[in-house]
Simulated scan of single mutants.
Amino acid sequence: MLTLSFMRHAFVASTFIAIVSGFVGVFVVARNLSFLTHTLSEIGFAGGAFAVFIGWPVLNGMILFTMLSSILVGQMSIKESRREAVTSAVSALFIGLGILFLSLSSKNASSATNILFGSVVGINLGEVQQLIWLSIVVLMVIFITYRQLKFTSFDAIGARVSGLNAALYSVIFLIVLALSVSVAAQIVGSLLIFILLTLPAASAKYFTHGVAKMIGLAILFSLLGTWTGLFLGYLTNWPVSFFIAVIEVVIYCCALIKQKYSGAA
Rank of each mutant, 00 (worst) to 15 (best):
Y169E: 05
I193C: 07
G98M: 03
M1R: 02
V181M: 04
V90E: 04
K260Q: 15
F35N: 03
I193T: 11
S34E: 13
S119D: 11
P239V: 10
F53K: 12
G229N: 00
A167Q: 05
A264N: 12
L199F: 13
A212G: 11
V171E: 01
F50R: 04
R82E: 11
A201Y: 08
T198W: 08
I219G: 07
I132Q: 08
P57W: 02
A85T: 12
Q259R: 15
W133K: 02
L196P: 02
Q148K: 14
L179V: 13
S241G: 07
W238N: 01
Y169Q: 02
F194L: 00
L40P: 00
S106D: 13
A10P: 05
V121W: 12
F50S: 03
Y146M: 13
K258F: 15
S180D: 05
Y234Q: 11
I175N: 02
P200F: 09
L134F: 10
F154P: 00
V181G: 01
T87L: 13
E127Y: 03
I257R: 01
S14D: 00
L191G: 04
L93Y: 10
A85S: 14
T226V: 13
V161K: 03
V90L: 07
G225L: 11
Q186N: 11
T145P: 00
A92F: 10
I17A: 15
V128P: 07
N237I: 07
F173S: 02
G22Y: 07
L224T: 08
A156I: 10
V250H: 05
S162V: 09
I71Y: 12
L139N: 01
I99H: 06
L134E: 10
V121F: 15
I43C: 10
A167S: 12
V249C: 10
A156T: 12
A49D: 09
G225M: 06
V176I: 15
A51Q: 01
N165G: 01
F101A: 06
A245F: 14
L131F: 01
L223C: 01
V183F: 06
A265W: 15
G122L: 03
G126F: 02
V86I: 15
F35K: 00
G189C: 07
L68D: 01
K79I: 10
G163W: 04
V52R: 04
F194P: 00
Q259K: 15
T15C: 14
S91I: 13
N237W: 12
V24K: 08
G48D: 00
G61A: 06
I175M: 13
C254H: 03
I172Y: 11
L2T: 05
S88I: 12
M1E: 01
N108P: 07
L164M: 10
S180I: 06
I63P: 10
